[in-house]
Design a protein around this nucleic acid. Structure first.
Length: 643
RNA sequence: GCCAGUGUAGCUCAGUUGGCCAGAGCAGCUGAUUUGUAAUCAGCUGGUCGGGGGUUCGAAUCCCUCCACUGGCUCCA
């Protein structure tokens, strides 16, 4: 028997018989490992653990603890769900059924039947019942003709369309139990590890993502190898619901919406406004240290401005339509972007190279028409404020400026308590050049500028093609919140195009006119979206420096109100802000309400404290800290502020 | 915008197959209580049941339509 060399993840090389499977390899290492292997990669390609390896290869084994192992597990679960659906709803047709970040979905055409959440338990039961059969996932190569015949007989036009796009000789089917699917694989060895399952929700999804085509029913679900993991997952979902910024925003009176004002138009209540302005003040101060200058521009601009910038051609039809002056009929647009205004500020007078880089910042409120179905709390709205700035610089300065923005952004994100973040480099889609404006040379220069700058900065990056803005490539910051969910935050964009469109120039040292480069950047992205993420990340327990009320003084009885006022005034002199709960309520009640309002520090004052010039300190979600003098409290506070 | 779902008091929710003046808790108001580390007690106020139209002797309940919200899809300068 011919032998082949298998290189394992730890770099060791072992010899096996020709045709060995990853499962055999695992078994040769340990039985426990073999039990847990879900899939493998062979020379970087994800394979079934049961697929024979026919040449020297480097093999990695994936279990539930690997991202790849989970993906295989969920993909196989999608097939299991499909089998269950076919058993319960004969004639059902299938679109695609991939694994996603948490779980999987299958797009199905149920014909005349409409699925509802009441159907979920029976689908779940059927899945578990089928899983217990320990059906193997069997891979089979099929010819294109046979594949077409199979799905023609079955009457599944979606699969036929998928097959149409595949090459003969590359088509594989997978069968488990009574269900056969067109599938590239890989799959887990058999259905038995699928021990817990939950159908999560239903949604409409266009076939192949095309809104002109038929809408299928997308069934989202998740499965686990252990029942406990499902319970934990469902608890996490519950926790996420509790932290939902729409719920907390209303409870903490941060912001509101009103039907009368209009969809997607948030209004900031006093507490939310405090929070937001504190964030802005912080960012403004950081930016001013870095040489930014603030400006203010109007909320509307002449239509011609956006024709010049190219935004009108690109988005005009899908925007709020122009408003007109009553007599002259001149057209103005609600400002969807600040950059054209800032370009005009640059052009206010001839600029010298000595002024560059010129960093123009604005907390600019913009209005964008978002489709009604897109609106979501504060994270997707029609009127929002960007923490925007545009840096006008020379080509030689781009890298340095980009690095400065990277430094600013990471500093700000860390200050907000996010530890876990990565950068996504968003480049052009090489297959769709028409989506973009500007010359190839400019794009190349801009893309290379980003890549060069980021390579010098210590940050984990991923590159995505087709995610660039229409006028230039971007670097987007992705953060992970306390529940492990990913969010896109701020962005940095290098732009050679707008300066050209606005014919911006500066006079160089050579006394010649040159075109500046523009960097667009917004560390938070928008105040609205950022605050929505911050609320969910902190569950409403904002950092002490940022929170609207830092303390609540809770007098035990009404006669302690004068003493409470004295404390409040002393704390005010130290820039410590808060309020007195002067209601005639029990102390238990006042504590409960302050806890629910997420007030970080509660100062309970009774006769004892008043006699000794003390306060009894209680920390939100920590409990009783003990009594201390007012000065001691101030140092305690300042110490907490440092943390 | 599309698919599915939801819409009862400021909030959370009850309201059997259509049938007396639509209910509760919390919040609010009034009064009493002056309280020691997560809800003091009592009374009261509050709803054209999302808007409009229809079916019916009778609609919160059934139908149509519009609006908003929720979960997705598509989109995101």
């Amino acid at each position: 028997m011919q032998k082949i060399n298998i290189t394992l993840a730890d770099g060791s090389i072992r010899q096996y018989d020709h045709g060995v499977t990853a499962m055999d390899v695992a078994l040769s290492i340990s039985e426990g490992l073999a039990r847990n292997v879900l899939s493998a990669s062979v020379d970087g390609e994800i394979w079934d653990a049961s697929r024979p390896i026919e040449k020297d290869a480097s093999v990695r084994l994936f279990t539930w603890n690997d991202k790849e192992g989970k993906a295989t597990f969920w993909h196989s679960s999608a097939h299991l769900m499909a089998e269950a659906l076919e058993a319960l709803y004969p004639g059902i047709k299938f679109g695609i059924g991939p694994a996603i970040e948490s779980g999987f979905y299958y797009d199905v055409d149920t014909g005349s039947v409409t699925l509802t959440p009441e159907d979920f338990p029976k689908i779940e039961q059927k899945m578990l019942e089928l899983a217990r059969n320990k059906s193997a996932y069997v891979r089979k190569k099929v010819s294109k003709a046979d594949a077409i015949k199979y799905f023609t007989d079955k009457g599944d036009e979606y699969k036929l369309e998928l097959i149409d796009g595949l090459e003969d000789g590359q088509i594989t089917f997978y069968t488990q139990g009574n269900f056969t699917d067109l599938c590239r694989g890989p799959h887990i060895p058999d259905t038995s590890p699928i021990k817990a399952t939950k159908i999560l929700n239903l949604a409409g999804a266009y076939w192949r993502g095309d809104e002109k085509r038929k809408q299928l029913t997308r069934i989202y679900a998740i499965t686990f190898p252990k029942a406990k993991e499902l319970t934990d997952y469902l608890e996490m979902i519950e926790e996420a619901k509790k932290r939902d910024h729409r719920k907390l925003g209303a409870e903490l009176e941060l912001f509101m919406f009103s039907e009368k004002v209009g969809q997607g138009l948030p209004m900031w209540l006093p507490k939310g406004t405090q929070l937001r302005e504190r964030l802005q003040n912080y960012l403004r101060a950081e930016q001013e240290k870095m040489g930014y200058q603030m400006v203010v521009t109007p909320h509307i601009g002449a239509k011609a401005l956006y024709v010049t910038s190219g935004h009108y051609a690109k988005y005009g039809a899908d925007s709020f339509q122009p408003i007109k002056t009553p007599k002259e009929g001149e057209e103005f647009l609600l400002k969807p972007m600040n950059c054209p205004h800032h370009c005009e500020i640059f052009a206010v007078r001839p600029r010298s190279y000595k002024e560059l880089p010129l960093r123009i910042g604005e907390f600019g409120t913009v209005y964008r028409y978002e489709q009604s179905g897109e609106l979501h709390g504060l994270s997707r709205v029609r009127g929002f404020t960007q923490d925007d700035a545009h840096i006008f610089c020379t080509k030689d300065q781009v890298k340095g400026e980009f690095l400065q923005v990277l430094a600013l952004t990471t500093k700000v994100i860390k200050k907000m308590g996010f530890e876990n973040f990565t950068a996504q480099i968003s480049l052009r889609d090489p297959e769709n050049p028409d989506k973009y404006i500007g010359s190839d040379e400019n794009w190349q220069a801009a893309e290379q500028g980003i890549i060069d700058a980021v390579s010098e900065f210590d940050i984990e990056t991923v590159t995505e093609y087709g995610e660039a803005a229409f006028y230039g490539p971007k670097l987007d910051f992705m953060i992970k919140d306390a529940l492990g969910r990913s969010w896109q935050l701020g962005t940095i964009q290098v732009d050679y195009n707008l300066p050209e469109r606005f014919e911006l120039e500066y006079i160089g040292a050579d006394n010649q006119a040159h075109r500046p480069v523009m960097i667009h950047r917004a560390p938070f992205g928008s105040m609205e979206r950022f605050i929505s993420i911050l609320i969910e990340h902190t569950a409403g327990k904002f950092p002490l420096w940022l929170t609207p009320d830092q303390y609540a003084i809770l007098p035990i009885s009404d006669r302690l109100i004068p003493y409470s006022e004295k404390i409040k005034s002393i704390l005010g002199q130290h820039d410590i802000r808060g309020f007195i709960d002067d209601r005639t309520e029990s102390i238990g009640r006042k504590i409960r309400d302050a806890e629910l309002k997420r007030v970080p520090l509660m100062l309970i004052v009774g006769d004892k404290e008043a006699e000794n010039n003390q306060v009894s300190v209680r920390r939100q979600s920590h409990g009783d800290i003990g009594s201390m003098s007012i000065n001691e409290f101030i140092s305690y506070f300042e110490q907490l502020l440092e943390e």
